[in-house]
C-alpha cells in the first residue's frame, strides 16, 4: 500500500508538491508544530508534512485550506483541458500539460485520515467545544473531507478523477443552448 502510494505521489508530483506546500503553510498559519518538513517520504506520509495533531483552532483549517485550493487548481487546470481533449479531440502541448497537472491536483485533494479524524473529533467529538453554528456550517465540508481522506487512502480517487475528466465536458453541455 505504501509503495503504491509512493509511486502515485511520484507520478502526480506537481499536485503532491503543491499539497504538501499548502499543508506546511497552513501549519504555520495555525502554529501547528511540524516535526519533519520533507515532502516525499517512503511511507504513508508521502505528499504530506509530518506534524503534530492540530489543536481545536487549526484542526479544520489545516484540512480545509489545502483542500479548497487544490480543488480550485484541479478544476482550473482540468476543465479547459478536458473540454478540448475529451470533447473536441484537440491535442496540443498545453492541453496535455494542463490535464496532467489538473489530474495530479485532483489526486492530492484530501487530508490524511488522522487529520480528518482529528478535525472530526474537535468538531463533533464527545469533548468538542465547537459552537452549534460551527457544527452546522462546517458539517458538509467536514463530511466531504473525511470521506475523501479514506477514498484517497485507498486510491478510489483515481477512478473518481477519471470519471470527472470524462464527464465534465458533457456537464458543461447542459448549460449551453
Amino acid at each position: 500500500m505504501e509503495l503504491i502510494n509512493y509511486i502515485l505521489k511520484i507520478l502526480t508530483f506537481p499536485g503532491a508538491f503543491l499539497k504538501a506546500f499548502l499543508e506546511q503553510l497552513a501549519c504555520r498559519m495555525y502554529e501547528v508544530p511540524i516535526e519533519f518538513g520533507r515532502y516525499f517520504q517512503k511511507n504513508e506520509l508521502c505528499g504530506h508534512v509530518e506534524h503534530l495533531l492540530a489543536p481545536k483552532k487549526g484542526s479544520f483549517g489545516i484540512c480545509f485550506l489545502p483542500h479548497i485550493i487544490m480543488l480550485f487548481c484541479g478544476l482550473v487546470f482540468t476543465i479547459p483541458a478536458a473540454l478540448n481533449l475529451v470533447y473536441l479531440g484537440k491535442i496540443n502541448y498545453f492541453g496535455i500539460i494542463f490535464l496532467y497537472v489538473g489530474i495530479s491536483c485532483l489526486l492530492n485533494l484530501f487530508p490524511l485520515i488522522e487529520d480528518s479524524l482529528n478535525m472530526w473529533e474537535h468538531l463533533y467529538g464527545k469533548e468538542s467545544k465547537a459552537t452549534a453554528i460551527s457544527k452546522i456550517c462546517l458539517f458538509i465540508p467536514t463530511v466531504i473531507m473525511r470521506a475523501g481522506s479514506y477514498l484517497e487512502h485507498y486510491f478510489v480517487t483515481v477512478l473518481t478523477t477519471a470519471a470527472f475528466v470524462w464527464s465534465v465536458p458533457y456537464l458543461f453541455t447542459l448549460f449551453i443552448k
Binding site: 506546511q24 501549519c27 504555520r28 502554529e31 501547528v32 508544530p33 518538513g37 503534530l52
Partner: peptide
C-alpha cells in the same frame, strides 16, 4: 521552533 518550520 517547530511552529515556525522554515521553507526551503
Amino acid at each position: 521552533v517547530m511552529k515556525h518550520y522554515p521553507f526551503s
